[in-house]
């Protein structure tokens, strides 16, 4: 009777291995995700906003796995950066000046309470701007990741 070494011939699981590059960028191939193998991803929620769900959206049907229109994406990134800069310069500086002016024209316990609320809102605006910056940098990283992958594929084909 032939004995089978179960340890030696133990089959590797078909699913459960997320390629390092995908895992690094939090991109889970649909097959792995389908079987519940999702690498942990740290997402810092925007101030005062529940964390954004990153569960794969099955049921949302896209024609292809990745679709990038670089020029349009560049326009989006540029527009987002411009808006962020506008918000930063006009709002942040303006708000600080306003709080200072209120404190100059109003003194008392009620003013303290009011400016505290105003400063709290100011912090929320700053965190919202921070969230927009995160979104913008994520678009840029995603674009770079696709371009990098494209370059590697091209090199692989050229080196055949």
């Amino acid at each position: 009777m032939v004995k089978i070494d179960k340890e030696k011939y133990k089959s590797e699981p078909m699913y459960g291995v997320v390629p390092p590059v995908q895992a690094k960028y939090g991109v889970v191939p649909p097959v792995q995700a389908k079987y519940g193998v999702v690498p942990p991803i740290d997402i810092q929620p925007a101030y005062g906003v529940p964390p954004i769900s990153i569960q794969p959206a099955y049921g949302v049907v896209y024609p292809v796995d990745v679709n990038v229109s670089y020029n349009d994406l560049e326009d989006c990134i540029a527009r987002l950066k411009k808006t962020i800069n506008t918000l930063k310069s006009s709002w942040t500086n303006g708000s600080k000046k306003q709080i200072a002016r209120i404190k100059e024209s109003w003194v008392g316990a009620d003013c303290e309470a009011y400016t505290q609320k105003l400063e709290g809102m100011d912090q929320k605006v700053n965190k919202s701007i921070e969230a927009l910056e995160l979104l913008c940098s994520t678009y840029e990283k995603a674009r770079d990741l696709v371009l990098e992958s494209q370059k590697k594929s091209t090199d692989a084909v050229n080196n055949m």
Binding site: P30, V49, P56, V64, S69
Partner: peptide
């Protein structure tokens, strides 16, 4: 930008509507 990005940069398995909702509520 969020609306345009959905069209020019789509990834199957990523639902942008969550991001839109989060910013809208913020």
């Amino acid at each position: 930008v969020l609306e345009t990005t959905k069209k020019c940069f789509s990834i199957s398995g990523v639902d942008y509507s969550n991001i839109e909702q989060a910013f809208n509520s913020t």
